[in-house]
Simulated assay, not measured.
Amino acid sequence: MTPYGLPPEHQVLVHWCYAESENGVADIIRAGPPAAEWEEGPVLSTSGTSGAFVMFDAAYGGTEAGTLTDSAVLGLAGGRYRADSASIDPDDLRSFRTHRFVEMA
């Protein structure tokens, strides 16, 4: 999944906190994650050769996951991943929370 037309090396999930429009979002995300202060998150494991995860807002119950239109499917190869998060606040008018999945040995 590459949100906002980002290339594969920028595979992040973007939680849009606030902004007037999505104009320029891809440029902000491209510039932001490399300079962002990433917070290490929990570790998850996928079994087999690949796994598909449905990501959705925690306010929804797990039984609603298949019916949500504002969810994303993340495909990961089998293995262990740490879910890191960072905030990107380019100015007072826009704020995003980004999440990346770092493959662990």
Rank of each mutant, 00 (worst) to 15 (best):
W38L: 11
L68R: 07
I88V: 13
P42K: 15
H99A: 01
G24T: 07
G66C: 07
I88H: 05
G51F: 00
S95I: 00
H99F: 15
S21W: 15
V12G: 07
C17Q: 12
T67D: 09
G48N: 04
F96S: 00
G41N: 08
D70N: 15
R97K: 08
F101R: 05
T2M: 05
S85A: 13
T46P: 04
E103N: 01
G51V: 00
G48M: 03
D84L: 04
F53N: 08
P7I: 06
L13A: 12
D84E: 14
E20F: 09
E39M: 11
E20D: 09
T98H: 00
L13D: 08
Y81N: 06
E22P: 07
A72C: 13
A19S: 10
P34D: 06
L68H: 02
A35C: 01
E64M: 10
L6I: 12
L93G: 07
A65S: 12
L68A: 02
G41D: 02
C17M: 07
Q11Y: 14
A72F: 07
R97P: 00
S50L: 13
G51E: 06
A72T: 14
V12P: 13
P7V: 09
C17K: 12
E40A: 06
A36H: 02
S45H: 04
G32F: 00
F101K: 04
G78N: 06
T46K: 03
G61E: 13
V43I: 13
T2H: 14
T67W: 10
S85T: 15
E9S: 14
D70K: 14
E64C: 06
V12E: 11
E20I: 08
